[in-house]
Design a protein around this nucleic acid. Structure first.
Length: 638
DNA sequence: ACGACAGAG
DNA sequence: GGTTCTCTGTCGT
């Protein structure tokens, strides 16, 4: 990867990306979200320095803590040294954050006319409000800007709020020289961004007043600019980036002042490759902070172009087209659409790390797999089912409890592990090789998800029962594929289980579609949307038919002690008991102990896959390849 | 379909 | 004592 050979001959054919001005995009970022969730649960925390920890790091902290010098992603020990009275909450279980995130997202969704409402992580939301803003632009009276009214509903003219259309809501970038930013009524884009700023201000106000969550907002013409704009004034404020067409300097200067690493879409790998090219040398980890290449520097570097970037970023496994994508980003151009709101995730995964004490024995692995599987099964019920209203509106009494229905069926199950890095490789000649040695390796195996996990009605198994079967029948075979060698400490620092490959169940919108009526459109009316989030706000989560686990912590270790074990587990249990009595010291040494080898034998000797299996629901024997479809047929029955 | 990897918070 | 717990998307096979 010699840099000299990459300089292109034809420097005149460089194309400057053209931004699209047609859209109006809002970006919301809830301020220190995890900390806010805890503060809302316990308001007395608001005045104290508060940190949220996950294992040995501080996931986030509130602004009181930040004022004391505490930073995100610090080691706990360091944070405590800096701020001894830091209050620490455990944020390893994400359930409460997920619940709040969904609630706020549902609120914002209710204000979209086009369903383009995209969540990014748990604490960010993009809205495409082009249509709402355009409607309000048409309704605007430019002769009475100060007494404007923002319409939130096309079909109900009283829904909305009053605002002063002669000024922006919140901050504006760039700041007008001399006085407060005026609104150029002759510039339609300027008017539209002004309108969008008031909508963003209104929504942020409601998020705070009605739900207790302050946020930072960004308003611009695409996702990249909206997001970057939002980070200019934090917390609890908003920024409109005046990305008007007649004034390209605004966007250029705005982008140029950011380091390339801050641009969303340019990750660490891409940033490193660009930096190495510009600095004409490999970049080491310790150099990273000092090498702060700015967008302006990269953009104006001799010969820089989409094609050159494509060459710079070309490496085995590289995404093609990323050169043009990055070139667009450097110019503040981002054609990507705000994705439509979807009710079901495309993947659900649960993981735990064991960094300070890696898992060594099969017994430990079994214990953790059971705990993870139990959480996964519970999450599938919560996130992938809904209570079918058509069957419950008539009799929602205890006599006939609401039976949830599945919104989607994941088809595949995946198990991932990571073994702890043992390598203390001599860092002697690190500069000679540009290859980043990953000091951890994650690997995974997947298989068809058995359909018994979907059993809800009739003899309804508990989460634990389903989880137990999942472990023995699916996860254990996957584990054996990942770790075929027996003996020696397993040394696992991470376990992750995941269901994915969702088959969405067709949405039967109950009954009586009036002839000629567009059902899809009916669902998008304001009433329905508002009801949607109101209901969400007050109703309990889908009632499980089985007794729910009476605990708040996802990570509770589930041990089915008194239950009858299948043959496979007999030895396993002994192993587990033995392990409980062994000291850490023994555990560390027992890699070669014959006692342990016995345990390993049973652990690794799974049944071979037989050609024919038995359906778990009707008992019918079928060839293995036909089982998946057959069982799915049962699951969709009801 | 499967498995690795990159990027996001 | 050297990163948490997720989610989405793409690439090669």
């Amino acid at each position: 990867m010699k840099t000299t050979s990459l300089i292109p001959g034809a420097a005149k054919s460089i194309k400057i990306p053209r931004r699209n001005d047609e859209r109006v995009i809002l970006h919301f970022d809830y301020d220190c979200f995890y900390a806010s969730v805890f503060e809302n649960e316990n308001p007395s925390l608001k005045s104290q320095p508060l940190g949220i920890k996950q294992k040995s790091i501080l996931a986030t902290c509130n602004y009181v803590a930040r004022a004391r010098g505490v930073k995100k992603l610090m080691l706990i020990s360091e944070a405590q040294r800096i701020c001894p009275d830091l209050i620490l909450m455990n944020g390893e279980d994400l359930t409460r954050f997920r619940d709040v995130s969904k609630k706020l997202w549902a609120f914002l969704r209710a204000h979209s006319w086009n369903r383009r409402v995209e969540r990014l992580g748990l604490d960010e939301v993009f809205l495409d409000v082009t249509d709402v803003v355009q409607y309000n632009q048409e309704m605007l009276n430019v002769h009475a800007l100060r007494d404007s009214f923002f319409h939130l509903d096309r079909s109900d003219p009283v829904k909305g709020f009053a605002f002063d259309g002669s000024a922006f809501s919140g901050c504006v970038q760039p700041k007008a020289k001399g006085g407060p930013a005026g609104v150029d009524v002759d510039n339609p884009l300027c008017v539209r961004l002004m309108l969008a700023s008031h909508l963003a201000g209104y929504l942020r106000h409601k998020l705070d007043e009605d739900f207790g969550y302050t946020s930072s907002g960004g308003i611009s013409t695409n996702k990249l600019l909206a997001k970057l704009a939002g980070s200019v004034n934090k917390p609890n404020n908003q920024t409109t980036l005046l990305a008007t067409r007649n004034d390209d300097d605004v966007v250029r200067e705005f982008m140029d002042a950011h380091s390339i690493r801050k641009v969303p879409g340019i990750g660490s790998r891409i940033a490193q490759l660009i930096e190495e090219y510009i600095l004409s040398r490999p970049t080491e980890r310790r150099d990273r902070e000092s090498t702060n290449v700015m967008v302006g520097e990269a953009r104006t570097y001799p010969g820089m172009s989409a094609d050159l970037l494509e060459q710079i970023l070309d490496r085995p496994g590289a995404e093609r087209g990323s050169g043009e994508k990055v070139w667009n980003f450097l110019h503040g151009a981002d054609p990507s659409e705000v994705k439509e709101a979807s009710d079901v995730p495309t993947q659900i995964s649960i993981e735990d790390t064991y960094m300070s004490r890696p898992l060594q024995t099969p017994a430990e692995v079994m214990r953790e797999l059971r705990a993870l599987a139990t959480s996964l099964v519970r999450r599938m019920r919560v996130d992938l089912t809904e209570v079918d209203l058509t069957t419950t509106t008539t009799t929602s009494d205890a006599a006939s409890p609401a039976v949830p229905r599945w919104l989607a069926y994941p088809k595949t199950l995946r198990l991932s592990t990571r073994t702890r890095s043992k390598q203390a490789t001599a860092p002697s000649s690190t500069s000679s090789s540009a290859i980043e040695v990953p000091n951890f390796s994650r690997s995974s195996r997947s298989t068809a998800l058995p359909t018994f996990v979907f059993q809800i009605s009739s003899p309804s198994p508990s989460y634990e029962e389903i989880a137990e079967r999942l472990v023995t029948e699916s996860l254990l075979p996957l584990f054996r594929r990942l770790h075929p060698e027996r003996g020696g400490g397993l040394n696992l620092a991470l376990l992750n289980i995941c269901v994915t490959n969702m088959v969405i169940v067709a949405n039967e919108t109950s009954n009586v579609p009036a002839p000629g009526r567009d059902i899809g459109r009916m669902f998008r009316t304001q009433e329905n949307k508002l009801r949607e989030w109101t209901v969400y706000d007050t109703s309990p989560l889908p009632v499980p038919v089985v007794p729910a686990l009476a605990e708040a912590d996802d990570r509770v270790k589930v041990c089915a002690e008194g239950e009858v074990q299948k043959d496979l587990f007999c030895e396993q249990q002994e192993e587990e008991q033995g392990e409980n009595m062994t000291s850490d010291c023994e555990v560390a040494m027992n890699c070669s102990s014959p006692l342990v080898d016995e345990g390993y034998d049973d652990f690794w000797d799974g049944q071979e896959e037989s050609d024919s299996q038995r359906c778990q629901i009707c008992g019918h024997a079928l060839p293995a390849f036909a089982m998946s479809a057959h069982e799915r047929f049962h699951a969709m029955d009801e």
